[in-house]
């Protein structure tokens, strides 16, 4: 009986430790719910819409000189969304875990969206590599539990974008994520810290719903000649040129052009004092 009590106590202790170490299970097929920013996330953002993003002047310059047809270049056609943007993209995600067969501990989480690479989040306590290590679309991610919330730090990201209308995110940026599961609802908070293009951390929170019928299909990408252009030509716009394409959105929607230029100030409630008291004048077209 004494042995049973000792074993029971040890088992309970081990159980507590294992539970603390393994947190919550995020495994499953998760479908994005586009109940926020649907016009931006699914059909795509408007040119010149930098509202509510804490960009600096350098990022804004990259945005206004961006030409959408750059996506037709061979080098860009199969470029996946990066780890920070993909949560906000138009793709379902599959999440699964690696389990050590002996210790039965979760050693890594994987997340793979329709239009992304397999992200690995290491849970085994390994350090991040040195700065000189290769940067990738997924970056290098490690996770730890804070209660039932999985907190992930990601470094070593290739240059990406914070909105897919040309607003850049540098390869110096780091990403913090918080994964929160409440039954069949998954909320992911992403916080981007970019010393090159952002003046403040950029946070977004995005919701997914468990979908037991979802199956992420293969997403092969083949490079083709989309546009006949001279060799070496890179689509771009000249700074200071015709700005109609970046101001059209603001004018059409009745938004001050200064607001549409974004910046940290536009994220805060006080900014509403600088906005017209009249309603916006554009209605998202069904696309």
């Amino acid at each position: 009986m004494a042995i049973a009590i000792v074993c029971g106590a040890a088992g309970a202790q081990y159980d507590d430790a294992a539970r603390a170490a393994s947190g919550l299970d995020f495994t499953g097929e998760w479908a994005p719910r586009f109940h926020e920013d649907q016009p931006e996330r699914v059909p795509g953002p408007e040119l010149g819409d930098y509202l509510g993003i804490p960009i600096n002047a350098a990022a804004r310059m990259r945005g206004v000189t961006w030409e959408a047809s750059i996506q037709t270049l061979w080098e860009w056609q199969c470029r996946p969304h990066s780890a920070d943007y993909i949560w906000r993209g138009p793709s379902p995600v599959r999440i699964w875990k690696d389990v050590d067969p002996v210790s039965r501990q979760v050693t890594a989480w994987h997340a793979e969206w329709l239009r992304s690479v397999d992200r690995q989040i290491y849970m085994d306590g390994r350090p991040h590599p040195p700065e000189s290590a290769p940067h990738t679309w997924a970056g290098f991610s490690t996770g730890r539990w804070e209660g039932d919330m999985l907190t992930i730090k990601t470094t070593h990201l290739k240059e990406g974008y914070v909105r897919r209308n040309g607003l850049p995110r540098s390869d110096k940026a780091t990403l913090t994520e918080h994964w929160m599961r409440h039954g069949d609802v998954l909320t992911a908070a992403t916080i981007v810290y970019d010393p090159v293009y952002l003046t403040e951390p950029f946070i977004r929170t995005t919701d997914y719903e468990l979908d037991l019928h979802q199956q992420n299909p293969p997403y092969p990408c083949e490079v083709v000649e989309e546009v006949d252009r001279p060799k070496g030509a890179v689509p771009h716009r000249i700074p200071g040129g015709d700005d109609l394409f970046v101001t059209d959105f603001a004018k059409r929607c009745g938004i001050p052009i200064e607001a549409a230029k974004g910046g940290a100030e536009t994220m805060y409630p006080e900014y509403r004092a600088k906005l017209p008291g009249t309603p916006s004048t554009c209605v998202a077209a069904p696309r």
């Binding site: 920013d37 805060y268 900014y271 916006s280 209605v283």
Partner: peptide, 20 residues
């Protein structure tokens, strides 16, 4: 911190704009 749904939160949306 309004980084999402800016046009529907910081301004009064247009009548009939119930996107999302």
């Amino acid at each position: 911190v309004v980084t999402e749904d800016w046009r529907w939160r910081m301004m009064t949306p247009a009548k009939g704009d119930y996107a999302s």
